[in-house]
Design a protein around this nucleic acid. Structure first.
Lengths: 116, 116
DNA sequence: TTTACATATTCCCATATTGGAATATAATAT
DNA sequence: ATATTATATTCCAATATGGGAATATGTAAA
């Protein structure tokens, strides 16, 4: 078995840095392909191909206007990533909470010393 | 150019569902390889290989005890993913915020009607 | 209808993958 | 020293990648 296709899920689609960049730009505003080509400085086929992957996973939606195709972010499709990663946040914050606790205890002690 | 190696960054490492599962288990407690084999029901080489990838990106740390190797999650290494994805959350929450606003306005109107 | 513009698709290559099976390494116990 | 346990590594196959170049498709303007 090979690696899962980039179109398998948002995790795989977003593993590619260029696609993350694309989503960041589209997070700001709906854009046509040529606008993205200009903003990002990539070749047109490159932009189209990455958009194709993002569309297949539902991370962007396409809207045809004249000869242009306007792409916009579908942020909800990022939710699986958000939901998966956020629970871990408390693990790397735990130490700071403990540090806070420690500092607070020290403050309390200081106060007690002063009032004694 | 091919796809970036799985060891390139946390995004690529975590694109593989099995590795996410592994991290979830290690989020609970430090574990030896044989414990993971049992908990997950995978073959031992499979567990070792995925752990190898996770170790290379710094998502897990290894500790040798006797002939066992204990692996534990290094949650901080997930921060880049957390930091990248969380800003998007407001985009899919925006509609609910607007709904909240709407409901609040309705409540206000009700109050005004009553007090009038 | 021909021309110009906007975008998508195809063909190519080098590279890396996951999983399975077999094997190697390392540490402890007998 | 040898057997046993715990883990890592190697070899294999099938598969998919991303980028470049060239080309196809689709839409509107002249």
């Amino acid at each position: 078995m090979a690696r899962a296709p980039t179109t398998f899920d948002p995790f795989n689609a977003v593993a590619e840095p260029k696609r993350r960049q694309l989503l960041e730009v589209l997070g700001t505003s709906e854009s046509a392909v040529n606008e993205l080509v200009e903003k990002l400085g990539w070749t047109q086929p490159m932009v189209s191909k990455h958009l194709g992957v993002l569309k297949q996973v539902g991370l962007v939606n396409e809207r045809r206007v004249g000869r242009q195709r306007l792409y916009r972010l579908n942020a909800e499709a990022l939710k699986p990533i958000y939901d998966w990663v956020t629970p871990f946040e408390q693990l790397w914050n735990a130490r700071y909470e403990r540090l806070d606790q420690l500092l607070q205890n020290l403050q309390e002690e200081k106060k007690n010393v002063r009032t004694k």
